[in-house]
Amino acid sequence: MSRGFSHVLNSSPLQPGDTQLIVNNVSLSFGGVKALHEVSLKVQQSEIAAIIGPNGAGKTSLLNCISGLYHPQVGEIRYRNGKEHILTSLKPYQIAKLGVARSFQNIELFKHMSVLDNLMLGRHVHLKSSVFSGGLFWGRAQREEIAHRKFIEDIIDLLEIEAIRKQQVGTLSYGLQKRVELGRALALQPSMLILDEPMAGMNAEEKEDIARFILDINEEHGVTIIIIEHDMGVVMDISDHVIVLDFGSVIGDGTPDEVQRNPQVIAAYLGESKHG
C-alpha cells in the first residue's frame, strides 16, 4: 500500500492544454543517413504523447534532440516553462535543469550505485551542497540530504520498490532496473517526462505495472509524458496523442483513433510486417 505522495511531483507551471514543446522543422542526419527529416510537432501540458514507428524510424533520435544529446542540422526545438527556451542551443544538463527528465532505451543506470543513490542523483539539480559542505557534511549538506531523502522515499513508495532500495542496481533484474530508471527520472521532479520504450522486454504483468505507474504520474500529478512504445495495445490504451514516424518523417499525428485510420500509417505498418 502506498502512503500517498506528499510532495509536488510536477514542476511545470503551465496549465493543462497549454503548448509546452514545439519541434519546428527539425532535420538530423549522420553522414548520409537521414535520421530525421523536417519533423514538426507539438506537445501539450499534461498529455501523454506516444511516438511510434518501425525500427530505425528516428524515434530515439528525436528524443535525443529534445534532451540535447543530438544537434539537428536544421530546425529548432522550443520548450515553455514559464519562459520559452530553445532546447536546440542548450546542453543536456541545462535542459535537465528545466525539468526535462528521461529514461533510455538501453538502461543507462549507475550500475555500482544503490537504488537510493541512483534516485538521489536524480535530485542533483535541486541539491545545493558543495565539495566543502559535502566533504565536511556540516549543517546544510546533512539537512539537505535528509529533506531530499524524503522525496525519494515517496518515489520509492509510488513505484513499489521499497524492498530493493539499498541494493546495488547492477544486481537487479531487467524489469526492476527499468523501474528504477523511471524512478530516477521522476526524482528530477520533471516538468516533462520522456520515456524511451519503458516496457521493452517485459512480460504482460510487468507491462501492466508500468502502464499503471505512467497513468498515475500523468493523471494524479499532471506530468506531461512523451513515450516511445512498440506495443500498439498499450499505446492506444494510455495515450492522448500519437505521433507516427517513418524513415525520419512524421506520417501521422493525432488522437489514437485518427492515427489508426490514417492510410499512410496503415501502409507503413503493413509494409513493416511484410518485411518481417
Partner: peptide, 9 residues
C-alpha cells in the same frame, strides 16, 4: 551520458 542528462555538468 546519463549523468549529463540528469543535470550533472
Amino acid at each position: 551520458i546519463a549523468a549529463e542528462v540528469m543535470g550533472v555538468n
